[in-house]
């Protein structure tokens, strides 16, 4: 027996023993720092088991260290929370699914930010559980059933009732219409191109000096028109004043227009003038006496 063999074998076995103990404890307890226990009471069938993660608002704060099955329909779940984390007052614990295959986590959700905490070894109230995979699958099953019903109706209406044939005809008509519209658009485009070319030619033919002169003439004409308009406005206002005066019966014209006596007098004058004219025709000598010398 050589001492070197003893040392080597002893070292290997001791190291293996230490690795075995430490590794097992690490896997079982989730680390060598123990943390403190917290409890939550959950209903049967929660799918929780030892080793599952405990999240506090999404942060990994510990793990499930033990699950105790009670005959009253509940599971008492012991959680190990790492020492640097504390559970705020008002927090509820619920089970939430993790992935598609039934794995779950414990989710701790504080109701509000607070500086008071639930003491270690206390029980966190159970919250409303998130929908389980079975519930989600049932919902998906119901949705797929409804989808099947819709598909059946579509099959009846579209296939058996000839809906697809009608749709196809409509699409063909629409296609023909689109072709026609495309032709029209192409023709219009050609006309528009031609017009644009002509316009371009015309525009390019205009002499800028002529345009300048025309613009100056146009400005002068506009100024004259402005003066004319002002004169017209003045004349109109004067005419308005005259008409107002006439309308109110002021002045000779007003009286002439508005006074019935003037009219009657004028009628009488005209009647006398008529009789005078008639008398003059009949007896011109009464009025015309020509004396020579």
């Amino acid at each position: 027996m050589r001492p070197r063999d003893n040392i080597l074998v002893g070292a290997v076995i001791t190291a293996a023993f230490v690795v075995l103990v430490v590794g097992t404890l690490w896997l079982v307890r989730g680390g060598l720092q123990g943390g403190y226990p917290m409890y939550v009471r959950l209903p049967w069938g929660s799918g929780i088991k030892q080793g599952q993660t405990v999240f506090l608002t999404g942060v990994d704060v510990g793990f499930v260290s033990a699950v105790d099955l009670r005959t009253d329909g509940t599971l008492v779940v012991e959680m190990r929370i790492r020492k640097q984390f504390r559970i705020p007052e008002g927090t509820t614990a619920s089970i939430e699914p993790n992935g598609f295959f039934g794995d779950v986590d414990v989710a701790l959700r504080p109701s509000r930010p607070t500086t008071s905490y639930i003491p270690p070894r206390d029980t966190v109230p159970a919250g409303k559980p998130a929908p389980t995979m079975a519930q989600l699958l049932a919902r998906a099953d119901s949705a797929s059933t409804r989808l099947g019903d819709v598909a059946r109706v579509v099959q009846v209406e579209m296939v058996q009732g000839g809906g697809i044939a009608d749709l196809r005809k409509t699409l063909e008509s629409a296609n023909a219409l689109v072709v026609q519209l495309s032709g029209i658009a192409a023709a219009q485009s050609r006309y528009l191109d031609r017009t644009m070319r002509s316009l371009s030619r015309t525009v390019s033919a205009i002499d800028s000096a002529t345009v300048d002169s025309a613009v100056k003439n146009l400005k002068t004409t506009t100024a004259n028109m402005s003066d004319l308009t002002n004169n017209l406005e003045r004349a109109t206002s004067q005419l308005d004043a005259v008409l107002v005066k006439v309308d109110s019966g002021g002045g000779t014209v007003g009286k002439f227009v508005n006074d019935p006596a003037v009219y009657n007098n004028l009628q009488a004058v005209l009647a006398r003038l008529d009789s005078l004219t008639a008398d003059l025709r009949r007896n011109p000598k009464r009025y015309i006496n020509v004396h020579i010398f």
Binding site: T24, L27, V28, G30, K49, Q50, G51, Q52, T53, D103
Partner: peptide, 21 residues
């Protein structure tokens, strides 16, 4: 790292080590 560690601890019992040994 977190994923692997979480899976490593999931559902572990000392009996598994005993079984291996």
């Amino acid at each position: 790292t977190f994923d692997f560690r979480a899976g490593l601890r999931l559902g572990f019992s000392q009996f598994q080590v005993f079984y291996s040994l």
